[in-house]
């Protein structure tokens, strides 16, 4: 690829920003209400309780393109004490859905780590659905910084 300035700008904007709000193209960012609605869709209308699920995110993400996120849920992972799934939302992204993890007894522990894209400073939300129908939530704010060098 010929690295013209235009080219580079386009590419980095696309790569870095994924959806830099206020850029040349700014897809509508989700509102916290959208994310809340998606949480309720996932839980089937049950308001999630606190505890059990814990989300581990950096306080400050060095680059919004690759933000490590871990989630763990307290559970024996046997019989009825089983985590079925954990959904991750980012309430400030163009689309709040990030990923859904599904666990089984064979998982041994309800634990997962991945790397995600965050368009701006926002909340990352994890909602865990247990086999007995109970749901739990954790929420962490991640600050996404703006690089000084060309964005």
């Amino acid at each position: 690829m010929q690295l013209t300035r235009r080219n580079v700008l386009g590419l980095t904007a696309g790569a870095a920003a994924f959806a830099m709000a206020g850029g040349r193209f700014s897809p509508a960012l989700a509102s916290a209400e959208d994310a809340e609605k998606m949480v309720m869709d996932f839980t089937g209308g049950v308001t999630p309780g606190e505890g059990k699920v814990s989300l581990n995110t950096p306080e400050i993400a060095e680059n919004g393109n690759t933000v490590p996120v871990s989630v763990t849920v307290e559970s024996a992972m046997e019989g009825d004490d089983l985590v079925e799934s954990v959904i991750i939302f980012a309430d400030g992204n163009p689309n709040p859905a990030v990923a859904t993890f599904h666990f089984t007894e064979m998982s041994g522990e309800a634990l997962a780590t991945t790397r995600i894209r965050l368009a701006k400073t926002q909340n990352v939300i994890a909602v865990a659905k247990m086999k007995d129908g109970s749901v739990f939530m954790d929420k962490k704010e991640v600050k996404v910084t703006i690089g000084g060098c060309g964005g």
């Binding site: 690295l3 300035r5 580079v8 590419l11 980095t12 790569a15 870095a16 060095e62 680059n63 393109n65 690759t66 690089g147 060098c149 060309g150």
Partner: peptide, 20 residues
């Protein structure tokens, strides 16, 4: 490996800095 843009060669980085 830049979190921003993936694998990045030295001369690409030089050029990026100079562009900036």
């Amino acid at each position: 490996y830049r979190l921003k843009s993936g694998l990045t060669s030295l001369h690409q980085r030089f050029r990026g800095c100079i562009r900036d």
